[in-house]
């Protein structure tokens, strides 16, 4: 589904991603771990199409198609979703209106008619129940005045609404208490299928107890320096990152 080959990316002439290779197949869950500043969010943003970052070399293939030239919205229309580490506040636009616009614009791009209002409402009800989101919440301005946990839960609500093919969750667990973490993980697992894939970016093993990864990668200074299975996450939790630095000789 997603193939990233030797990806180099920079911002303001500063190299951040320095040769990323990552292959994700449908049905898989990948975890990306690594110390702060190693480039995890940058990788997520580059895949989602943030223009601030300049791709110097390498390629990102989605279902075999190079998406490098596509805008963020075109990637979204192809099923890429990013749950933001820091969701942006948008005063004056309610959660509901935002989702209606996002869904209908996506459908339009896919050559589909607008979703009928009653269907939309039904979907909003179902998905907000799945994530145990109070309905009153949906009429509030997007992310404005939301607590950290509410923002993250709202991100997964949006994911549930948009049903993406490839979801990248950037530190969705930070700011969540254990109950919210369970709800969010449960939501992600319910959406999981043989046809879609999830990349979970996290510092902690905690989330991976609920969303169990098939592969775990360690990102360090813009490169994936080690890959393994879920046991690697346990090892990182127990021993930190220093041993990896020594092992890979950086």
């Amino acid at each position: 589904m997603l193939k990233i080959n030797d990806l180099h990316a920079s911002v303001e002439d500063k190299a951040i991603l320095r040769g990323i290779n990552l292959h994700v197949k449908p049905g898989e869950v990948h975890a990306i771990m690594g110390p702060n500043g190693s480039g995890k969010s940058t990788l997520a943003s580059v895949v989602a199409g943030k223009e601030e970052y300049e791709v110097q070399s390498g390629e990102i293939l989605l279902d075999g198609e190079n998406i490098d030239e596509l805008s963020a919205e075109e990637r979204a229309h192809k099923g890429v979703f990013l749950s933001f580490q820091y969701p942006v506040e948008i005063p004056g636009v309610s959660v509901t209106n935002f989702m209606k616009t996002a869904i209908n614009e996506t459908r339009k791009a896919q050559g589909l008619k607008e979703m009928p209002a009653n269907e939309m409402l039904k979907m909003i009800r179902q998905k907000s129940e799945l994530l145990e989101i109070d309905r009153k919440f949906l009429s509030r301005s997007l992310n404005e005045g939301f607590s950290g946990g509410e923002k993250k839960r709202n991100e997964i609500f949006q994911m549930a609404m948009l049903e993406p093919k490839l979801a990248i969750l950037d530190e969705t667990d930070s700011g969540l208490d254990i109950d919210a973490l369970r709800i969010v993980a449960n939501g992600v697992n319910k959406l999981k299928s043989e046809d879609n894939a999830v990349i979970v970016i996290t510092h902690y093993q905690r989330l991976l107890d609920y969303i169990v990864p098939d592969f775990v990668h360690v990102l360090y200074e813009g490169r994936i320096v080690k890959s393994g299975t879920k046991e690697l996450a346990h090892e990182l939790e127990a021993k930190g990152y220093d041993w990896i630095k020594e092992e890979v000789g950086v």
Partner: peptide
């Protein structure tokens, strides 16, 4: 950053700008 956030949800740039200005 608000524009990128909206675009990453599939809202085209022009509509995203309009929605922000409307808001």
């Amino acid at each position: 950053s608000a524009l990128f956030y909206m675009r990453s949800r599939g809202i085209p740039e022009k509509e995203a700008r309009a929605l922000l200005m409307y808001a």
